[in-house]
Structure formats: C-alpha cells, structure tokens
Design a protein around this nucleic acid. Sequence first.
DNA 1: ACCTGAACACCGTTCAAGT
DNA 2: ACCTGAACACCGTTCAAGT
Lengths: 198, 198
Amino acid sequence: MTGRQQRADAQRNYERILEVARTVVEEQGTQASLRDIARRAEVGMGTLYRHFPTREALLEALLRQRFDTLAARAEELEGADDSREALRQWLREFLSRASAYRGLSSSMMTTIGDEDSALHASCSAMREAAGRLVKRAQDDGHIRPDIDGMDVFALVSAVGWIAEQGPVVAGRRDHLFSLVLDGLAAGAVSGRAPRSAD
Amino acid sequence: MTGRQQRADAQRNYERILEVARTVVEEQGTQASLRDIARRAEVGMGTLYRHFPTREALLEALLRQRFDTLAARAEELEGADDSREALRQWLREFLSRASAYRGLSSSMMTTIGDEDSALHASCSAMREAAGRLVKRAQDDGHIRPDIDGMDVFALVSAVGWIAEQGPVVAGRRDHLFSLVLDGLAAGAVSGRAPRSAD
DNA sequence: ACCTGAACACCGTTCAAGT
DNA sequence: ACCTGAACACCGTTCAAGT
C-alpha cells in the first residue's frame, strides 16, 4: 500500500527518518524533539513533516508492527486451555512492549479518545483482540464480571506509566503488575458501594 | 519562617505570582508556561525565578498546605475504629487532591526519587503518615501483607494519572479506584510466582 | 514530486543594568 | 534588595523557493 511508486530519494528519506526516530525516541521518549530527528536524519524539517504530518503519525509508523504482532498474539492465545493464564501472558507481553518508549503508555491512552489520531486506528484492533481475551477469562469465571477490556487496558498501562516515573518505582513494575492482575481476579469484589471522591 | 522582613514589593510579588500560578496551573497543568505566569502576574521573568528557583519550588508552594492537611488527616484517621475504611477514606481524599492539576501525579511520583526537589520534601511527611495507615490496615488483616505504602501510593497515583488521559477514561476514575482498592485487600493473593516481562 | 531551510511565534534560563 | 527585560539557545510548524 504505502511506499509504492515513490521517488527513490523519498523512499530513502522515509526509511532514514524512521530509523533515526527509533533511536531518538528510545533515548528521549515519545516527546522527543522532531527537530533533532530531522537533524540526525540529515533531512529538512519539511521533509519530516511531508512523510509524517503529525507526531502521532511518526509514532504509529514506529509501532504498527508491534501492534499487529500483539493483536495476532491475542488471537493465538484465544485458543489456549487456560483463559486466565492466556490473559495474564498477553498482558505481560503488552506491558513489556509498552515499556519500550517513555511516554508510550500516555500516548496510547490519550489517543483512545481521539478518532483522528493515527495511533488510535493502529491500536484499536489490538485493544479489541485483547478485549476478547478478557471476555473469555470472565466467561470462565477467572476475572470479576464488573469490568471490561478498557479497565484492564487502563490499569496495565498505568503500571507501565509508574515504571516510567523514576528508578525508585521502576523496580516494582513486575510486582505491581501482579498486584493489579490479582486484583482483577473474580472473588476479590468488595461489598462497599463506591462513591465519588470530590 | 518565610515572608519575614521582606521588602513590601517583594512580598506583594510573591503573592501575586502564587495567585496567578494557581489559576494557570489549573488551566494548563503542572507543565504550564512559566513565561505565561510571569506575564499574567505582570512581573519580570527574573522576579519569578528569584522567588521560585525551580518549577517544583513553585508547585510545592502551591501544594504545601494541601499536603499538610492530608498528613494531618492521616494522623487523625489513625485513631479510627475500622482501619480498612480509614485507609480507603484517606486514599479517596488523596486521589481527589491529586486530580486538582493535570500532571500532578507524575510530578509527585518523579520527585520521590529526587531528594533535592522541594516537592520531595513537602510530600514525604504525607507519604509517611499514609504509610502508617497502610501498616495498621495490614496488622488488622485487611490488606495483603506483601505490599507497602509505596505500592499503594503508586497505584492510587496511577489511577489519578489514568483520569488525566482524556474524557473517555476519566469517567472511570472512581470505578478504577475501587478495583485497585479491592485488589489490595487480603485474600486476593495469587498462587503464581511473578516473572519478568522482558 | 519532492526537498530545503529560513521565518515565525513560542519556550526556559540567565544576567547585566537599573532603582 | 529587588526588579526588569533583553539575550541566548532551544522548540514546533509553515511555506516560499529551489531541483
């Protein structure tokens, strides 16, 4: 689809930018300087904007493959015997990927509500596949019934966010992941009705 | 302590800046433009920097009173009958305060590891008081024993973070808060040993 | 078609010059 | 003592001019 019948220099620039962006975003997170990326790719600012009209478009290009892989993995795990363990395993892999770039959890969460974002489109198929894993674990009685895929996605992304907040808390990532997962298990439901905090 | 024997104009500027900062940070979050604050306070940039050498120092001045109040509230709740409900109540109030400014959860979490930050100092007394509430609830068997105050603080801050990520998820704040709290209750412990995700 | 880089309107931070 | 605002080194975004 993309990349067909482009001029050779355009093709080359596209790839150079993507390659450099991967490095820079790894270093600086999703808020990395676009100017810096253009500079290090030895490309004019206009060229970067031509290929990636928004920051999200660039991030999406960086992540599309991972999202597709994770979506495929979710479909694969739908066939597993233990639906509880399948969900746990998928979320573990998702968390690992979400920890690739600082700020990624936030970018994903924010774009959930923005239909126009390239990240939204790219991410939603994956989220739906994950939602089916949640549903199956619920049908088997492993996950409390009063939650949905979005709750699970939000909480695991939140653990990813915590890990980004500094070395002191980063070391607790896996522990917190376990806490959250345990908390979503059926049987942990409290009898108290929640009331608003403010 | 502070505010003693200052020149009248200095005192006035300090208060003006703080007042304007409250409004601007409410609007724009903790990443608000310092230039904008100085401009709206009708004060030179140097004046802002003289009174608040770092962004955190300004934020701390904005929040000190709230932190003190929350710390006092925690000590008050230490005397409550139901230690489980006391913790829940305190965390509810904390979450409400943490939702005052966009980015505040992140600022608090990040400065936990930075001893030099004004926010760190201001926040730590409150965190310690909250830690005692957690400890008491654990001693009474209401909270699982394999966690500490930092875990609880991180997870509830994470819920605050989620609520900042857009209107779609913001509506789930109280629901997610309940999920997390239920998950920390004793008896929800899983039998599986956690392993690293990457 | 595509690329370049200057131009514009913003930042945060510092610091000489003023009162 | 304290205040001011220009100066500096950065941004993101746009767009006329080039090939």
